[in-house]
Design a protein around this nucleic acid. Structure first.
Lengths: 104, 104
DNA sequence: AATTTGCGCAACCGAAAAGTTGCGCTTATA
DNA sequence: TATAAGCGCAACTTTTCGGTTGCGCAAATT
């Protein structure tokens, strides 16, 4: 199975789960209540998120709380970095251009 | 067809294409040379990238150059923003904690 | 001790994705 | 003007994905 963060966040439900548990750790049942699908479907998503370490478990009796692994999210940010460089450069160029026009 | 940026960047080939043309606009044939697949397969990826406006075309005779729409990439950055807030807060908390320890 | 609750796992299914080959159209080139 | 080159589009095939139902197990509850 090919599991990477980008494939993990491709699914809108998984993105919603990440936002949900970012605020507060939750059990699969609690998460499922927020969606129109079975607990098992949510569990499948959680499994994928766990596999690529975007989420981790915390056992509490028979309940399992899922919480966000914020560190892993930085990898997306890291990939974006190469493009951020480009748009910042372009912004500077635009800025310089505007300054030139103003001068005239 | 469900086409959003997150699904677009889920595919490793598409991510590679984005990085490629970020440096320099390219034709489908030129792009295909970088991968172990047919030109048609690359064209399919380009179509998807075009559909969600991560890429745009520039016709030049019978050749079509594909170039990055850097603006669209910011949408990923925008989504990431909510998580960035979290990791920055946590960093500050860690920082404060370290400062407290140092004081003692 | 019996029952309910919370969970993961496996089997199954339909839809979508990722690739292929095979066109046909348009623009260069000989 | 015939031929080659660069594309997009459509049909088809094989995986993968996202969801379901149906278990079985461990921890609470009665």
């Amino acid at each position: 199975m090919r599991r990477d963060i980008f494939q993990a966040i491709a699914d809108p439900t998984r993105r919603a789960i990440l936002v949900l548990i970012a605020l507060q750790a939750m059990t699969p049942n609690a998460i499922a209540e927020h969606f129109d699908m079975t607990r098992q479907a949510v569990s499948k998503h959680l499994k994928i998120l766990t596999e690529c370490e975007l989420v981790k478990q915390e056992h509490q009796g028979r309940e399992i709380y899922y919480l966000l692994e914020i560190e892993k999210m930085k990898e997306i940010d890291k990939w974006l970095e190469q493009f951020r460089k480009i748009w910042e450069t372009r912004f500077e160029q635009l800025d310089a251009l505007l300054a030139t026009i103003k001068k005239k």
